[in-house]
């Protein structure tokens, strides 16, 4: 899932300060699960902004809405009518959702209430850890299911750097060196031979440009009519 966190309150308050009627738009998927931008968080933020606006003597009104996913047109369309009643939209989606909402309402200021942080996993209630950098060329089959691009700060793909201390990363003694974990995992699953593969320099050409992909079925159905 995509993990995000709410921006500092002062930054949000400043961003919305100039607008009278603001719609706080939550997103019901990833950011709801990571307790940053779901229906609940939209309600709380609107209540906070409302009180803060009142304290600052501003005439502002904050309403809330929440859609299933802001990264899908189908769900964004539900907001069209409400959006027209407001001077600004404050989106609590990940960066992708904010952009899609902004694209749909080009004449309205669409503001971001969250900082999108990473693609990660749910470790425990209220705790998330990064696991993937969306590098477009997954190495996990080779590296024992441990991502060297993400879990090694240097993204070393051919083995550890010289800085590991007692199996911990040189950047942080609290973290395992990714390569210690990779080695252990491959050893446990009897795949140490994987490590002898000399991984060539990564082809960044795809990741360098804004990603775009189409499903084969989509192409079959639609490209012939283009």
């Amino acid at each position: 899932m995509i993990v995000a966190e709410r921006k500092p309150f002062a930054e949000i308050a400043q961003a919305v300060a100039g607008y009278r009627r603001v719609l706080v738009v939550g997103c019901g998927t990833c950011v709801a699960v990571c307790l940053a931008g779901g229906e609940k968080e939209a309600g709380i933020l609107a209540a906070q902004l409302d009180l803060a606006g009142q304290l600052a003597g501003r005439q502002q009104r904050f309403a809330t809405a929440c859609v299933e996913r802001q990264c899908d047109r189908e769900f964004l369309s539900e907001l069209d009518a409400a959006a027209r009643e407001h001077d600004a939209l404050l989106s609590l989606a990940c960066g992708a959702g904010v952009q899609f909402l902004a694209e749909r309402h080009p004449t309205l200021p669409v503001l971001a209430g969250l900082n999108t942080t990473f693609i990660g996993v749910n470790q425990d209630v209220g705790r998330w850890d990064e696991r993937c950098r969306a590098c477009t060329d997954c190495l996990l089959s080779l590296t024992g299911g441990v991502c060297p691009v993400t879990m090694c700060p240097k993204g070393m793909v051919n083995g550890p750097c010289g800085g590991a201390v007692e199996g911990r990363c040189e950047t942080d003694p609290e973290r395992d060196c990714a390569w210690t974990v990779i080695h252990a995992r491959l050893s446990d699953s009897d795949r140490l031979a994987n490590l002898e593969v000399l991984v060539p320099p990564r082809d960044h050409s795809r990741a360098n440009l804004p990603g775009r992909q189409a499903h084969a079925a989509y192409l079959r159905r639609y490209s012939s009519h283009d």
């Binding site: 309150f9 709380i44 906070q48 803060a52 304290l55």
Partner: peptide
Amino acid sequence: ELIAEIGL
């Protein structure tokens, strides 16, 4: 924490 953020 939330009310502290708004200055209460």
